[in-house]
Computed example of a mutant assay.
Amino acid sequence: MKKIKEIIVVEGKCDTLAIKRAVMADTIETNGSEISQDTLNRIKIAYERRGVIVFTDPDFPGKRIRQIVSEFVPGCKHAYLAKEDAIAKGDKGVGVEHATNEAIIAALSHVREEMVGEEIDTIPWEDLIAAGLTGGPDSKRRRELIGSQLRIGYMNAKQLHKRLNMFRVTREEFQQALEALYRTEEE
């Protein structure tokens, strides 16, 4: 079983159980979107001593928690789970706790580090327009596929631009993701 050095920030106890089923790791639970100052302080200490990986559900509350943690502790690592990998059988919800061991291991194998400091525009806005990732009738679906391919989650066009640059996605990575998108569209 793979051991994770960093402490994984999750939303609740069921997420912790799912993580421990898939890998050997310590977790900090935020108790959902009611993330307290005490919890944020523990995350900051964990970041300073071992590093943290934020691994929240692919839904609005998960994005909110991710944003709160990132603002309080800049420079965190992030693992993203595709929504289709987090849906419970019988459509009983979306969350890390519903993911298979394989999906959790894959997400943790493609962790992205948030870059803090100098803003670098690695992927210009014009590239998103040219790729049909904004302003078109099919842009949302295309962003979902790109986010999944790059393992940075789903987001609107403005957030996509920010994440591409925040995680320093290279032009080569972006181009490979676009090629995978085009292959999917041809099928």
Rank of each mutant, 00 (worst) to 15 (best):
V96T: 11
T184N: 11
E118V: 12
A130V: 05
E102H: 02
A130Q: 07
S148R: 13
N101W: 03
I53W: 14
T134Q: 10
E11P: 13
E97Q: 14
R49T: 15
T122L: 15
E34L: 11
I146Q: 05
R66T: 14
K89Q: 04
I105A: 04
G153D: 08
L181W: 13
V10N: 00
I152W: 11
D121V: 06
K63V: 11
V169D: 11
F55N: 02
I104V: 14
A131F: 00
I65G: 01
R112E: 00
N156R: 01
L17I: 01
P124A: 04
G32R: 01
L160H: 00
Q176S: 13
K140P: 06
P61N: 08
F55M: 10
C76S: 07
C14G: 08
R50Y: 15
A157H: 04
A18P: 05
G136S: 13
F60L: 11
R171P: 12
E11W: 10
E48S: 14
K3T: 12
T170V: 09
F55H: 04
D91Q: 10
V10Y: 03
P74A: 04
A106F: 12
N101I: 04
H78Y: 14
I104P: 02
A82V: 04
E144A: 08
I53A: 06
V111I: 15
E172R: 05
G12D: 12
E84F: 14
T16R: 03
A177S: 12
A180K: 09
E126L: 09
I65V: 14
R64P: 00
E84C: 09
K162G: 05
K63Y: 12
K162D: 11
E29C: 14
R142W: 05
V52E: 09
H98Q: 01
E113A: 10
V116K: 10
E119S: 07
G90D: 11
E29G: 02
T39V: 15
I120T: 01
I4R: 05
F60Q: 11
A131R: 01
F174N: 08
G12A: 06
K89R: 03
I35C: 04
P61T: 06
M155R: 07
V169W: 11
I19N: 02
L81F: 06
E119F: 15
C76K: 03
R66Y: 03
L40K: 00
K140N: 10
I43Q: 06
T16D: 13
E71R: 05
R141Y: 13
F174Y: 15
A22H: 05
F174G: 06
I65S: 09
R112N: 02
E179S: 05
F55G: 09
G132F: 02
C14L: 13
T134R: 01
V52N: 08
F174T: 08
G51M: 11
T100Q: 07
S109F: 06
D91R: 10
A106E: 12
A180L: 08
E97Y: 06
I129Q: 14
T100A: 01
E186K: 07
R42C: 09
R66E: 15
T56I: 05
E187W: 11
A107T: 07
A103N: 03
K3Y: 15
A86I: 02
W125V: 02
R183G: 04
H161Y: 12
K77I: 00
V54C: 07
G132S: 01
R21H: 15
I65C: 11
A103Y: 04
Q175E: 15
R163H: 14
